[in-house]
Write a protein that binds this DNA or RNA. Structure first.
Lengths: 339, 339
DNA sequence: GTGAAAGCGCTAACAG
DNA sequence: CTGTTAGCGCTTTCAC
């Protein structure tokens, strides 16, 4: 509904109104508007100009019903507070939104935790979306199972256990291995690792990459300074304490959140970076870039990640064939924190 | 669509299928499912059990069309990169999603910049949402104007220029005034201020609150150490440099992003907080809480802000009457950075 | 090139 | 308490 200049409320004008006003059939108007089917140049112009003048806007709901298609895509983002602390998900979402908008799709978000995917379920069961993007892949991935069972097209950002799922990802293992071996070759002797929740596949890959980096340099990682599953700040703190008791040259963290915490801890103890200990992170962020000193890290284009996921999903929805696994680039940013 | 145990693809079952199978009319089935209208206990159970057994799920699109209602709400979040750096918008979004889900509404997001609100327009014009939540209020608020013109129910988070718009907000001016006067009364003499983009109303209120804090203490603020419209990191840096040339006891920043930058700058110059200069922020964040020392700041429950906005909008959509302006609480967190 | 009619799946009078 | 009927607004055969 909208108002005219007198402030009266006007009901939305429908295809029927246009047809009657122009003495045409709904069919013709529909064809003129959608551009599908043959309509004479004259009538098309007539319809189009009338539509513009009277501000006719096709009702997407009705179109959806007729098409059995919603032109919506669902995006699942983690609802936990920790996830809100890293800009990753918001950036992915922005990337998805931008691409979706350019294809005339809208984006529905479902906030889900590891244990509660009810809003994803509602959205899918109610037929509110044509497909779904998962922004985090889990070891026990109930969203993936649900979507497969419901036979809904979906794309996972990150690596999935399910080998048939379409995924858009970085080669995390390669990136982490690359960074680790660069650091080793720079002459750093003893490197500690702190990675987060192992339920998130990405953290497993970070560990794998770390180990592979050592392997490639014909070195063996010291298991006593590797801390996996550090899913909370106290756990990070405790890892740091233990690390500082050993004679460690460098700490690599799984992500920016952990890294931030490590840096705070080091500052509290007046330990200088990189003077007394070097620090690097397997995931970059604004904060790490602006730290003093800036932190060596792996950089990925998260916005593009979202965009590619959206493009892929839309192709999938439209029945196109897509690559089962799309790998995006990464880059290693060597900064002062490891010199 | 879903698959049965043999992997065959089953078409979705509709209300018609249920009706035929049970030898009832669509109406009766509809009533049994929706719970509206009188149906005998017996037939209701019959329908319900058949529905469950055959996994019948009503099609939300069809219901939308019949109701002329989508059961979706739109949320506009800023698409600019800076906004992605603060968890504010993601938290608000989570709050909205949670509340919306509990009322069986879904959430569509429109990423919009100050200059491009095309995705908001699409979403509204296509009738994809019943109402909209704006998560940031602007001085020149094209979203507000558009929504008023389209006669779509909407709620603004933050203070709006438009006096008729429904808004959910904190009393920013009061909060900032409160914090400022507390600091003054603690004996701090010279206080500098750095606030961001004045296009955002919230930054204007922060300035107002700062000034009011001085007034209430019968003091006059020193305009030469007030920096407004510091919308980028270089501008913050330059403000800090100028401040450090004057004899300033304390820097108050408009938000956590600016504060983070100020802290980095101070660290670079080896200026200790609070020893040589005190620091406080008009907006709290995880990072500031975990800083060493923790930063004095204003804390607001952003998740609840989103939730309240959603509740209010849904009430509005349902034709209920709502308060035109809802003020949420804030609290002042006094931390070591200002002792 | 244009139109009539059926239908997408569900809801809501209006009758019985 | 249940069924009939007519839409919601748009798309899409199938004729002319």
């Amino acid at each position: 509904m909208t108002e005219n200049k007198n402030g009266e409320i006007l009901k939305d004008i429908t295809i029927n109104d246009v047809a009657k006003a122009l003495n045409l059939s709904k069919t013709t108007v529909s064809r003129a508007i959608s551009g599908k089917g043959r309509v004479s140049e004259a009538t098309r112009n007539l319809v189009l100009s009338y539509a513009k003048e009277h501000n006719y806007m096709p009702n997407a709901i009705a179109r959806s019903l007729a098409h059995s298609k919603t032109f919506n895509i669902g995006v699942v983002i983690p609802s936990d507070a920790d996830a809100a602390e890293t800009p990753f998900f918001q950036r992915v979402l922005m990337g998805i939104c931008e691409t979706a908008a350019s294809r005339d799709y809208d984006v529905l978000v479902a906030a889900s935790s590891e244990h509660d995917i009810s809003s994803l379920k509602r959205m899918v069961i109610n037929h509110k979306v044509d497909g779904v993007i998962l922004t985090r892949s889990l070891k026990h991935d109930s969203p993936v199972e649900f979507l497969k069972q419901m036979n809904v097209p979906f794309v996972v950002i990150g690596e999935t256990v399910d080998k048939n799922a379409v995924q858009v990802d970085n080669d995390m293992t390669a990136a982490c291995s690359e960074m680790t071996s660069i650091l080793i070759r720079m002459g750093i002797k003893s490197i500690a690792l702190i990675v987060g929740n192992l339920e998130y596949i990405v953290n497993r890959r970070r560990y794998d990459g770390f180990m592979r980096g050592f392997l490639e340099c014909d070195r063996i990682a010291d298991q006593s300074i590797i801390f996996q599953n550090a899913g909370s700040m106290p756990m990070v703190d405790s890892a740091v304490s233990k690390i500082l008791k050993k004679n460690v040259d460098c700490i690599i963290t799984g992500d920016d959140l952990i890294c931030g915490r490590v840096l705070t801890k080091l500052r509290e103890k007046n330990i200088s970076v990189p003077g007394e200990i070097k620090v690097a992170s397997f995931y970059n962020s604004f904060m790490l870039e602006n730290n003093n000193p800036p932190i060596t890290s792996i950089n990925i284009d998260v916005h593009a990640l979202g965009g590619t996921a959206a493009t892929t999903l839309i192709k999938l929805i439209s029945g196109g064939s897509v690559q089962r696994k799309i790998i995006m680039n990464h880059e290693i940013l060597l900064k002062k924190s490891t010199v």
